[in-house]
Write a protein that binds this DNA or RNA. Structure first.
Length: 485
RNA sequence: GACUCCGUAGCUCAGCGGUAGAGCAUCUGACUUUUAAUCAGAGGGUCCUGGGUUCGAAUCCCAGCGGGGUCACCA
């Protein structure tokens, strides 16, 4: 199978052709040509000479017709044995499907309506010695698709488009932020104390320092240290790593956006969150705010409705947890509603659990779920009207949490108390309770301005905006078990 | 991690106790304005791995490996 192609490679070398040359001067791309010559009528021939480069994807009539694909699209190459110099034809005899070539020639449209380049000159740019997947069905084997993403990208326009749009989304998020005065910053991936969220970390070791380090589960505490340092508007886009399960919505490493704005609170974050997402939708959907995900339509146009978490729980279950503030009574009420609660859970955890089971999946259109209980938000400011709640919200779209936001807790005394509660929970067996970070508390002791912050799960946003139904379809190289050949 | 489905040619798949199959791709030839080109022919297999049942296993059973899905943890 490979042998035949290697034979062709040897034959090319015999002809004095370098099968792996260094560069090639491309003058045009297939997609641009298709657009430029849209008005060219069937059978019309131009005198325009162009040089294109790409991969041979199809070969008809013994090589007389070649489909060449580049990053922008497809164009047909026509090489008639009467019109093409013998030495060019001789070389082309050893071209295979999968080869990367450059073609110089004139542009025309065939009588059958296909935009075509009449070959004058060809250049081998990269010989392929392996067969491509089946041209019509492409890759169906999900494992092959994820392990050899390059094959998926060669074969699937949908997949290429997904990753192109992923890039557009990242650019859009950056643009929205930079345009409103935010600075992009970078904080460590290696943390001596894992912090900023509740999750199981990966542990690693630094040899020279002979020190245990955790891969970051969130950049939050470092970003807020920068706010203490005087930056007023900052953001970071980067990978978070969590040693947790893998699912259609979870990859051990995933991309998150975190934003912090000094002298702002969670209501400012509501506006900003909406702006970030709506701009990303528009930038990937030709200005439209409505998208289709699977068989449902989602309208992103704001303002998004705002409802408190307990309200939403009440709407669905009839239980008003504001009236049941005793943890044991709340657990009983949850149990009655058919939601199993881990014994010893505090009130806020119970509310969150019931919300997760009963409400979350119903929130298809964008919804701002506000006032998340204090028990599950150890880094957020207490709600001034209810000490059980925080000034916070979570954005839900398509039944998924896209990200949390809150008024950042800047009271070092309260923060230390909250950390101590987390330590207690950890000692009681909650593996994901947060660690005490006294260095962070010390930073707060120097004074942090009132600050609003938000986090956004970029991969999930990309899934939504590319109609992808697995996170592995929006991460080029998702985490898979290693296989040794 | 539990449950469940899947693993056959480079790819997409059929076969599901009795000699290993098709299409695309590859090779040879024909054709030379095709576009999933077409036509004639050829080559190509550790049927994921290892055990077991059986006269006989791709096929049935067990274990393992890899993947998908659901659940659990979580964004």
């Amino acid at each position: 199978m490979i042998d035949a192609k290697i034979k062709n490679l040897e034959a090319l070398k015999e002809l004095g052709v370098d099968p792996y040359p260094y560069t090639y001067k491309v003058t045009h791309h297939a997609g641009d040509l298709q657009k430029k010559y849209e008005g060219l009528t069937d059978g019309e021939v131009t005198e325009d000479v162009v040089a294109v480069a790409g991969r041979i994807m199809s070969n008809r009539n013994s090589g007389m017709f070649i489909d060449l694909h580049d990053a922008t699209g497809k164009i047909q190459i026509f090489s008639h044995k009467q019109d093409v110099p013998a030495d060019v034809l001789a070389q082309m005899a050893y071209y295979d499907i999968g080869d990367l070539i450059g073609v110089e020639g004139i542009v025309r449209r065939t009588p059958r309506g296909e935009l075509t380049i009449n070959t004058k000159k060809v250049t081998m740019l990269g010989k392929s010695i392996r067969p491509l997947p089946e041209k019509y069905h492409g890759i169906h084997d999900t494992e092959l698709k994820y392990r050899k993403r390059y094959l998926d990208l060669i074969m699937s326009t949908e997949s290429r488009d997904t990753f192109r749009r992923r890039s557009l989304i990242l650019a859009s998020l950056r643009k929205t932020l930079i345009d409103t005065g935010f600075l992009e910053v970078e904080t460590p991936m290696l943390h001596p104390i894992p912090g900023g969220t509740s999750a199981k970390p990966f542990l690693t070791h630094h040899n020279a320092l002979d020190m245990e380090l955790y891969l970051r589960i969130a950049p939050e505490l470092y970003l807020k240290r920068l706010i203490v340092g005087g930056f007023e508007r900052i953001f970071e886009i980067g990978r978070n790593l969590r040693n947790e399960g893998i699912s259609v919505k979870h990859n051990p490493e995933f991309t998150a956006l975190e934003v912090y704005q000094a002298f702002a609170d969670y209501t400012d974050m509501m506006t900003l969150f909406e702006q970030l997402v709506v701009n990303a939708v528009k930038d990937t959907h030709d200005g439209a705010t409505k998208i289709t995900y699977g068989d449902r339509d989602i309208e992103f146009k704001g303002p998004w409705p705002r409802k408190t978490m307990v309200e939403l729980v009440k709407d669905v279950t009839g239980i008003d947890f504001l009236q049941i503030t005793d943890a044991d009574a709340a657990a009983k009420a949850a149990d009655k509603a058919g939601v199993a609660i881990q014994p010893g859970s505090p009130w806020g955890k119970i509310v969150e659990t019931v919300f997760g089971e009963k409400v979350e999946h119903t929130l298809i259109q964008p919804m701002i779920v506000t006032d998340v209980p204090k028990d599950v938000m150890p880094l957020a400011k207490v709600h001034p009207e209810n000490p059980l709640l925080t000034e916070s919200f979570e954005i839900y779209i398509n039944g998924w949490e896209i990200g949390p936001a809150f008024s950042e807790l800047n009271d070092p005394f309260d923060q230390k108390d909250r950390f101590m509660k987390q330590v207690e929970a950890r000692e009681a067996g909650d593996e994901e309770a947060q660690h005490l970070d006294m260095d962070y508390v010390e930073a707060l002791e120097y004074g942090m301005p009132p600050t609003g912050g938000l986090g956004l799960g970029v991969d999930r946003l990309v899934m939504l905006l590319t109609d992808s139904h697995s996170i592995r379809d929006v991460i080029a190289f998702p985490t898979l078990r290693n296989v040794t050949k």
